[in-house]
């Protein structure tokens, strides 16, 4: 795969980029008195919705997802190597697989939870869950589904769906980034998986979970060994951070996540910092004229845009203070 193969996509992206929300749009939405005013700002953008209906049913996700779905579909058709996009859509694929697995385990109808985004069609995922075999779906995912079903059949544990799908999600992402063999993407995947591990350690310790729980939820696909993280976690989450993360290139950013006493990590800030670190890596990519990085950066920006819009709309709907919304806002593209 040559970097110039992405030329066509990159041109298209320059057009798409102009349609992303600007800082001014966000400011206007943040300053809006109520939901209606915030929606008014959104009307002039690429998001299409019936304001009256949205005001009544508050289903923000439906039009946000429509926008994501349309763009992903377009990108899948024009991108030479769809695996680049998959780094982002895997989350949806594995979400759908989880829903379908739970549906199979409990005989409940959960179809309404499926998200129509991802490389694999819902039909092929359904087929995979039903037959445990698939020609279309990647072997890693097939393996994960088989393992989850086997675990459920042996032990009857419903959480098998969550455990296996989460683990295989990271494994799948790692496999893709290894194949792409692009230094920035690899660094991004390293950072993402390592930091997600850190976040999971903090959350698990805060909830008083055991060591074996950490074994289950942490991913071994990161650059920092899972065993090292678990061992360091014996002395608390801050120890994990000090021992293993301070020599990482993004260590500087991590100082923000310590709360005043310096002995505790604020998981809420950590979640946000993860996005900022990935954003910084992406920003490097935006300036590359060739290669997959501009595409990655754009999709990341789009995903964060949807998160930000949802945050503001839900915030305005529930009269959450502007400050509280602002401190949770994710980085905005191009600013």
């Amino acid at each position: 795969m040559k970097d110039t193969d992405y030329l066509g996509v990159n041109t298209l992206l320059r057009v798409y980029e102009t349609k992303l929300l600007t800082r001014e749009d966000y400011e206007k939405m943040l300053r809006a008195q109520d939901l209606e005013e915030a929606l008014d700002v959104l009307k002039s953008t690429e998001y299409h919705f019936d304001a009256q209906a949205v005001l009544e049913n508050k289903h923000f996700d439906s039009f946000l997802m429509n926008r994501l779905r349309d763009i992903y579909q377009e990108l899948f058709t024009v991108t030479p190597n769809s695996e680049v996009i998959q780094i982002f859509t895997l989350r949806y694929d594995y979400h759908n697989a989880k829903v379908l697995l739970k549906q199979r385990f409990t005989d409940q109808d959960l179809e309404h939870l499926l998200v129509p985004i991802g490389k694999y069609t819902l039909a092929s995922l359904k087929n995979l869950i039903k037959t445990e075999q698939s020609q279309e779906v990647n072997q890693i995912m097939v393996e994960g589904v088989q393992a989850a079903i086997e675990d459920f059949n042996t032990y009857g544990r419903l959480e098998a769906a969550d455990v296996y799908m989460d683990t295989y999600y990271y494994k799948h992402m790692r496999a893709i980034t290894d194949r792409l063999n692009n230094p920035t993407i690899t660094r991004m995947a390293d950072a993402l998986i390592d930091l997600d591990n850190l976040s999971n350690v903090v959350r698990s310790l805060n909830q008083g979970k055991s060591r074996s729980f950490l074994h289950t939820v942490l991913s071994s696909s990161g650059s920092i060994s899972k065993q090292a993280i678990i061992d360091a976690s014996e002395q608390g989450a801050v120890n994990v951070l000090n021992q293993l993360y301070l020599n990482q290139p993004y260590a500087e950013k991590l100082t923000d996540i310590l709360v005043n006493s310096k002995n505790e990590i604020n998981p809420m800030v950590l979640d946000k910092v993860i996005d900022e670190i990935v954003y910084d890596l992406m920003e490097e990519g935006t300036y590359q004229a060739f290669g997959p990085m501009p595409l990655m950066a754009f999709i990341f920006a789009l995903e964060k845009e949807v998160t930000n819009i949802r945050l503001i709309l839900v915030g305005k709907d529930n009269q959450i203070a502007e400050e509280a919304i602002r401190e949770r806002m994710r980085p905005i593209y191009g600013s």
Binding site: M65, H95, K102, Q108, L113, R310, V314, I320, R328
Partner: peptide, 19 residues
């Protein structure tokens, strides 16, 4: 919960607690 929810896709949350 509302604050937490605002950062996540609704289907994701519902899936977490579907069973």
């Amino acid at each position: 919960f509302v604050v937490a929810k605002s950062l996540l896709n609704e289907s994701f949350i519902e899936e977490l607690f579907a069973v």
